[in-house]
């Protein structure tokens, strides 16, 4: 058991910040390569014409989830040392709905808007200013929101713990769901493309 490296004291906070910067570069690079600096490619997800958002996201989830599962299984990574946010189910569900609305109205999510800003998109700059305004409004209203923010606490809990099934079983089910989703997404894209082609012809 010797990872996460930081948690096992291989380096301190300041070296951690250097890793943060380097990992961030790779993160931004991957997002831009996927086309996620392009607002119309991102929002096409919600009009069924291009489901790359779903495909990229779930390929990434499956890759990291499966990799982490095996690294924990062979005893290299201590899963209990990987940071997990506590669950507050109702405020997180409401927050998720607002995130979705903001995504399709504004066109980006926070990470992709950074990539769009760095490739010259003016609307992404305005979107970022909007994010700052939204977080500021949340902060100023926090005394009013605090009880809802902390409502329905469930602690640090994973799907395997909630469902009382082994971790590997949930990993396998998520992989199955993703593969089924990819096939469905490709079928939807083809159907939409055929429909569009029919209109112009």
């Amino acid at each position: 058991m010797n990872a996460p490296l930081f948690k096992f004291g291989l380096f301190g906070d300041n070296v951690g910040l250097i890793f943060a910067f380097v990992i961030g570069i790779a993160f931004g690079f991957a997002l831009e390569r996927a086309g996620f600096g392009n607002v119309r490619k991102l929002t096409a997800q919600f009009y069924f014409t291009d489901l790359a958002v779903f495909k990229v996201m779930f390929t990434a989830i499956v890759t990291a989830m499966t990799g982490l599962f095996y690294l924990a299984w062979i005893g290299f990574v201590d899963l209990s040392q990987v940071y997990l946010t506590d669950t507050y189910i109702v405020p997180q569900a409401v927050g998720g709905l607002l995130l979705g609305v903001g995504f399709v109205v504004g066109g980006y999510c926070p990470g992709t808007s950074c990539v769009a800003v760095s490739t010259g998109k003016i609307d992404a700059v305005v979107f970022l200013v909007g994010i700052v305004a939204g977080i500021f409004a949340f902060g100023e209203m926090f005394p009013l929101l605090e009880s809802f923010y902390n409502a329905t606490p469930m602690g640090r809990i994973t799907l395997p713990e909630l469902l009382h099934v082994p971790y590997g079983v949930v990993v396998f089910l998520v992989i199955l769901m993703a593969v089924g989703g990819f096939a469905g997404a490709t079928w939807v894209e083809k159907t939409m493309a055929a429909k569009k082609g029919g209109q112009t012809a």
Binding site: P91, L98, L99, V101, G102, G106, G130, I131
Partner: peptide
Amino acid sequence: AFIGGGILGFGSKL
């Protein structure tokens, strides 16, 4: 873009 960013920023904290 500004309105969407504002809604999203607020939602991200919840």
